[in-house]
Design a protein around this nucleic acid. Structure first.
Length: 276
DNA sequence: CCTTAGACCTGGAGGC
DNA sequence: TGCCTCCAGGTCTAAG
């Protein structure tokens, strides 16, 4: 479910909820969630570790503990729940962290795609194995139009595919890639080598504005039910194109179409998004 | 270098 | 109600 903005809201919520608590015990009910190290080592090492710092790179959550970094990717449907008492049914709950204040931090994931990694601290967290091939976060100041242009100008793939490439910009997912192309008035199928410097400038600007606006919206949404849990659902954001098939384009009134691009559902206005 | 199909998983929606 | 197909916010791998 989450793209960069949602991951940021999950992170902020968890920081507010559990910073300073210690993991007294970890149990793993679905071993495949633990990517590294093996489950037994993971549980043994994480016991007694305190949550100290909360950060994010693209869609990766980075929990800095006393001696290790816990790196989590929620993939499609991963969520965290915080309980004062475990629920009657643990269906879809694959990892349970018992915290020092008696609460439980539970990892819930219906499709079981999400993954957790535990590594000893690294001077530069970006060098940790799961993050090695991740590019600049959408809020990283090194993400400039010059960087984007240099990264894509000789590529023949579509601009949307480049936006989804986490090794270039980290944090954009299928929904926001559509929204970014819409705001930049570019047909998502446009080949990268035809994207101008001016377009790159526009893309970088709308990327920051759309994703940060989503974080603000999500923050608001989360605050309203933070007392009970501390999780996330899909934000009820105002989307201009994604999932708007058949509706009138908010910019020109033309009907929004749905196509398939690189096996992903893609929405666009054929009238005001220019094919390059 | 790029694209595509398939894999990993489950559940909801819609057609019959 | 049951069965079937398609779809879903992600990413990796193999194969062409």
């Amino acid at each position: 479910m989450p793209e960069g903005p949602e991951v940021q809201v999950v992170l902020s919520t968890l920081e507010y909820q559990i910073k300073g608590t210690t993991i007294e015990h970890a149990s793993v009910r679905y071993p495949n969630v633990i990517e590294h190290p093996d489950v037994e080592t993971f549980c043994q090492r994480i016991e007694g570790q305190t949550f100290t710092t909360f950060s994010r790179l693209g869609k990766y959550l980075i929990f800095t503990l006393t001696d290790y970094d816990l790196i989590v990717h929620l993939r499609m449907e991963g969520r965290f729940y915080i309980y004062t008492q475990l629920p009657a049914s643990l269906r879809h709950i694959h990892v349970i962290f018992e915290l020092s204040d008696g609460r439980y931090l539970c990892y819930h994931d219906t499709r079981k795609f999400g993954r957790m990694n535990l590594y000893p601290h690294e001077e530069d967290p970006a060098l940790l194995p799961p993050l090695k091939n991740v590019g600049y976060d959408f809020n990283d100041s090194r993400l400039t139009w010059q960087y984007l242009y240099a990264s894509i100008h000789s590529s023949k793939r579509s601009i949307k595919q480049a936006l989804l490439d986490q090794s270039i910009i980290a944090g954009i997912g299928n929904i926001y890639a559509d929204e970014i192309c819409f705001q930049a008035q570019l047909d998502p199928r446009s080949r990268c080598y035809r994207i101008s410097k001016k377009d790159c400038e526009k893309i970088v600007a709308v990327t920051r504005s759309i994703l940060n606006h989503a974080i603000e919206g999500g923050g608001t949404t989360i605050r309203s039910y933070t007392s009970s849990l501390g999780v996330t659902g899909l934000f009820q954001l105002e989307l201009d194109v994604h999932a708007q098939k058949g509706k009138a384009c908010v910019r020109c009134g033309h009907t929004i179409d749905k196509i398939t691009l690189g096996q992903r559902g893609t929405y666009l206005c054929r009238n005001c998004q220019k094919r390059k």
